[in-house]
Nucleic acid binder design. Sequence first.
DNA 1: GGTGAAAGAGTGTGGAC
DNA 2: GTCCACACTCTTTCACC
Lengths: 145, 145
Amino acid sequence: MDSFDRKILGLLREDATRTYADMASHLHLSPPALHDRVKKLKAKGVIKRTTVELDPQALDRHFCAFVHVETEGYAKDILKEVAEADPAVEEMHGVAGSSSAILKVRTHDAAGLEELLRRLFETGAVRRTESFVVLRTYLERGISP
Amino acid sequence: MDSFDRKILGLLREDATRTYADMASHLHLSPPALHDRVKKLKAKGVIKRTTVELDPQALDRHFCAFVHVETEGYAKDILKEVAEADPAVEEMHGVAGSSSAILKVRTHDAAGLEELLRRLFETGAVRRTESFVVLRTYLERGISP
DNA sequence: GGTGAAAGAGTGTGGAC
DNA sequence: GTCCACACTCTTTCACC
């Protein structure tokens, strides 16, 4: 993991459809040498997978919110079940602080969030929730190498 | 945007290195027909870009937190400047609720978070912050079509 | 949307530093 | 161990039905 590898990761994050030949010329390497490095980065798990970034608006997910969940005792497993079953839930993190977990949610509208909250409370494990509705996303980029 | 397109998006999210021929056979379409659909999905902006998912651990980003920021009046632009300049900040959302903005942060360690907080307060626009340190990530998937 | 063909990319092998 | 040059196979992607 040297500066070459970091540059490769940066290029791939920007656009993974880049050809190896193109990236190789940018870094003054031969295509096979670059290919070798990418293969190793994948084998080592640094690159977990190649995927596409979708536009939430185009998929009718106009509503985004962060939901803080306070549970009755330790109930992460029950929470995870509900979160995983609902495609609206993009992330779930167990956190330290006044809340037990933070959920990142994307639904069609506010009613979709209410649906999720209902399901969360129905488990009996949730004491209270606090939802922060996203008004505008200023920045949303992945990890930068 | 029919059921074919949704299936294509699902397949590409899982693994964007799939060949068109492979996906076409899964959906009982010809490679060029599938290629046409993907091209249109990209042109329409449904597919924003093709990228790679990296492992935060492998890049020494062991520490993750959500930071709630309360500003002195409307100061999103100043906030955005600081957030954008810091590669540790992955997301910044303006939200409704008791906070003004939520930041998703990934650093090497807790000291990295403190650094960011210092920079935030140095702008003079921040009244208070509340940080929720991620103990464990239970779910982290993108949008599902 | 399907068919066939061209241009070009991905990906092994062998050899040199 | 890492990089380069060559070559072969498969994919992408075009024009036409």
